[in-house]
Amino acid sequence: MSTTELFESAEVPTIDTSGTLGRSPWQLAWARLRRDRVALVCGAFIVLLGLVAAFAGPLSKLIGWSPTQQDRINGLTPDGLPAPPSVHHLLGTDNLGRDVLVRVIYGTRVSLAVGVAAAVAAVLIGVIVGLIAGYFGPAVDAIVSRLMDVVLSFPFLLFAIALVSVVGPSELVEIGVIAFFSWAAVGRIVRGQTLSIREKEYIEAARSLGASDRRIMFVDVLPNLVAPVLVYTTLLIPVSIVFEATLSYLGVGIIPPTPSWGNMISDAQDVYQQAWWFLLFPGIALIATTLAFNLLGDSVRDALDPRTERLFAK
């Protein structure tokens, strides 16, 4: 039988062109995500946050106060307490007579920058380490896995505080500290995934073709890790944001007078009985942001792998 004869006898590839064909898993996930109303709302909110963070300067000019500027006229009540929301200060003032709205806006910048940067750094380290542990066999795996166990069993907040106390607080240190205590969780997940992918036949196929380890890792393993890693990144961002706020709240994060939601809340703690707005607005900003990222992460997971159960059932 020749090839031409075969053409006539072989099955004719009858494939319906119903729209899902030839679209990458990403395109399919994207289509699913776009139909998810929760994801759309959360995504829009996060974009808005990003815009607020990016245009914090012009916004504060528009409002008329800089984040560190004290209003000597209307900033404090005659008792020296923060002034409640009014026409002068839409969300009231803080303990030093500064505009809460402008400070919350600038706080967005810190939260997003530190949260996203730390999460991305943690994911990068975690992916590389996890990939190495999972791919290069039992000896490497044993060492790297122990290392991850050690990092994971650190009482991390305590350690973070201790570390910052020595190095001195700054945004970069904060990002480093958060990333340092978050990468191991990512590493563990990536390691597990890599271990199972490594046993797949297509890896053996690549090896039988003579592909190098590096090629197999980047061309065959990595694309299969993108989905779980993407989900984990979206869920790690809110964790990092809360971590940042907590460090700032404890006085080892962003140093005043630079505003962050955490150090605002810390200042508010002393006067919350008299000035609820000072506690409430940065608190709401923080909660809304983490909520949005959590919901979005859940939707992303859902879109990438419709079989898994949602963390938050609708």
Partner: peptide, 19 residues
């Protein structure tokens, strides 16, 4: 490796689903 090739049992497992 150029002269010897393999065809595998599992048509699902032997093709990388992401490529």
């Amino acid at each position: 490796r150029r002269d010897v090739q393999m065809i595998f049992q599992d048509p699902y497992g032997s093709l990388n689903p992401r490529r």
